[in-house]
Design a binder for these strands. Structure first.
Lengths: 210, 210
DNA sequence: TAGATTGTTAATCGATTAACAATC
DNA sequence: TAGATTGTTAATCGATTAACAATC
């Protein structure tokens, strides 16, 4: 079992997918599964699954395979789905609203606790059961509620400024939807840039090159 | 210059990012750039940039570097931003609406030409300037308009069925936002699964393991 | 016990980086 | 021409796959 900091990005990216598939198996009532069976379901190799899991510990049993419920729970723990990290949404436009209502935060170790938008017309209205606040409240809100994660659904021009500001207010993780590659120079800050436009473009590339 | 089919997925995934950065440089009025300069901007190595570009052709000039406008245009052509692939959106819930309004399809070689939702209450209302249609119209619409790309913003239970149906109606590319790993067995169909929940989960993992 | 399947080491494969001759 | 920087080949690195002894 390796130190958590030493796990490669490739492995980490696969963990949520393992978690999802095991959740489905659990619902289907499957009790145990071999790496071979899981591999064919997920279109991976059995080797890769065993390698990946053994980064975190020996969850299986020779001659038997893996207990679905146990493995699901272990991976959940590794991912931290049992945690409740406070999250704030910056920008309540179309995309921000959709993220707020569409994402199940509680099953991902998060809780959305605040929504902010600079548009005066939006301030005071509600999304996902939360009142939209003015950015002027950001500082006092963060001081009081100590959110650790910020979701950025704002235009690219303001992204770096707002992110720098949020770092000072204690934000440690950015889920960035702006059309800007955010990179924070401070240590101990993590960033996940989501570029939906890039995703579409790789798809059209592949479509045009079939 | 290699055959387009032989380009590795790693390279293809980086192309939209090159295109974006070159677009910014172009706006900034930068005329030429060396692989070294571009590398430091994008936090890549100069070697990687030159390797990537040379999959498609020798776009640079020794002793000079790359012409920003020319390279931007070349990568745009490779990605097919000059094309106009017809796209339909299936599912006009929160996320579907946000995708329809938020994504700039025309700069990604696409045009959104139809929106479908099974919810009777939504049919007839408009999103992004398009009337939402009933799925009953799907067949005649596809026959007439020949869309090649479908955006799936529907629950996971119906995803595989609808995708199979759409394949029969001539859809060749799926941009899949449902919580289901779509895989199509037919040849010459491309799928891009977008799992926003997985993206959040890798972020919280990294946050919890700082 | 015998059979099955893991955990883990070794081999392979592919992607990234480094080096440098070609050349503008 | 001399300097700069590419295009491209070779070296390195990491990730995936295969193999197999350990063991349930």
């Amino acid at each position: 079992m390796a130190k958590s900091g030493s796990i490669s990005a490739s492995v980490i990216k696969r963990l949520p997918r393992y978690y999802r598939f095991l959740g489905v198996l659990l619902k289907e009532g499957v009790e145990r599964i071999s790496s071979q069976e899981l591999a064919s379901r997920m279109k991976l190799t059995a080797s890769q699954i065993r390698q990946d899991l053994n980064c975190f510990g020996g969850f299986g049993q020779q001659g038997y395979g893996y207990n679905v419920e146990g493995l699901h729970e272990e991976i959940g723990k590794i991912l931290g789905v049992d945690k409740t990290v406070g999250a704030i949404l910056i920008g309540a436009g179309n995309l921000g609203k959709a993220i707020a209502t569409h994402i199940n935060f509680s099953t991902r170790g998060c809780k959305l606790i605040g929504i902010f938008d600079a548009d005066e017309k939006l301030v005071g209205t509600s999304v996902a059961g939360l009142a939209i606040r003015s950015p002027l409240e950001l500082q006092s809100f963060c001081a009081a509620e100590k959110p650790k994660l910020a979701i950025l659904c704002i235009p690219k021009t303001s992204t770096q400024d707002i992110a720098d500001q949020l770092v000072k207010l204690g934000i440690k993780a950015f889920w960035n939807y702006s059309h800007y590659d955010l990179s924070i120079d401070h240590e101990n800050i993590v960033v996940e840039n989501v570029h939906l436009g890039d995703s579409l473009l790789t798809l059209t590339y592949r479509l045009n090159n079939l």
